[in-house]
């Protein structure tokens, strides 16, 4: 498979993401500068990593969403391309209109850096097919604006159409208020597009791919990606 990682001014988890992808594919993916207006040919996956693009000034992801490269990403997604956005990448995807909803300030109004557990709500996506159905896995969050918001009608539609892929839960799998540290609607941690090929999530599974660093709970997500494109040829 061939992945590319977008680099905006202020992106800071690109190396983490590159290492995670390298772990499953054997190659470090190329970085793609925000000022480019086209994506490299033959990409299977575009990844928007975490960070503070444009310092999170104005509104998280708002300025990055206007970058030249994002027009190319929108075209890529419209043609059925696969896109993964993590943390600030998720915020950018929302600001670019590639995923629905909004990401508000955490309910506590504080930056939250801590462990979290997520339940995999569906394993029939290109990003989650290596998880066992109903799997709960540990990850870490590190964000100030990860409080996913959709109004009642939109939230209901997302649930009905199966676009909620990841949900904050207790280690035992219960979607409680205590497990929902940033205050997201319906404990939503990650959602996908209607065609399931664009995924955005706030936590950082790219930091849980190495037994010597913080365990390998996040690895199935990357193995899913790798497997999806291996079978697709």
């Amino acid at each position: 498979m061939k992945a590319g990682i977008l680099l905006f001014p202020g992106t800071n988890r690109e190396r983490d993401m590159a290492l995670a992808l390298q772990r499953v594919t054997g190659v470090k993916p190329p970085m793609i500068w925000h000022g480019e207006s086209t994506l490299p040919a033959g990409l299977d996956l575009v990844v928007l990593p975490g960070g503070f693009s444009y310092g999170d000034y104005l509104r998280c992801g708002a300025m990055a969403a206007q970058s030249p490269i994002m027009r190319a990403v929108a075209e890529f997604a419209a043609k059925g391309g696969h896109v993964l956005g993590v943390c600030n990448g998720f915020q950018i995807l929302i600001e670019a209109g590639l995923l629905p909803g909004a990401l508000l300030k955490n309910a506590s109004l504080r930056f939250l850096s801590m462990d979290c557990h997520m339940k995999v709500e569906r394993t029939d996506t290109p990003f989650t097919n290596r998880f066992k159905p109903g799997a709960v896995f540990r990850s870490t969050m590190a964000h100030g604006d990860g409080n996913y918001f959709a109004d009642a009608a939109m939230a209901a539609r997302l649930e009905a159409e199966g676009q909620v892929v990841l949900r904050y839960v207790t280690p035992e799998g219960a979607a409680t208020e205590a497990a929902n540290r940033n205050g997201s609607v319906n404990n939503i941690a990650g959602i996908c597009s209607a065609n399931r090929r664009v995924l955005g999530l706030m936590p950082h599974p790219e930091n849980q791919v190495d037994p010597l660093i913080d365990g390998t709970d996040g690895l199935p997500l990357f193995e899913s990606i790798s497997a999806s494109f291996a079978t697709a040829g």
Binding site: D16, R110, L112, S113, M114, T140, N207, D210, I213, D214
Partner: peptide
């Protein structure tokens, strides 16, 4: 205090 500090970015923090 440390819940407000990103201790993991970089992907190399073995003991946080």
């Amino acid at each position: 205090i440390w819940d407000q500090y990103d201790s993991m970015v970089g992907g190399q923090t073995a003991k946080r």
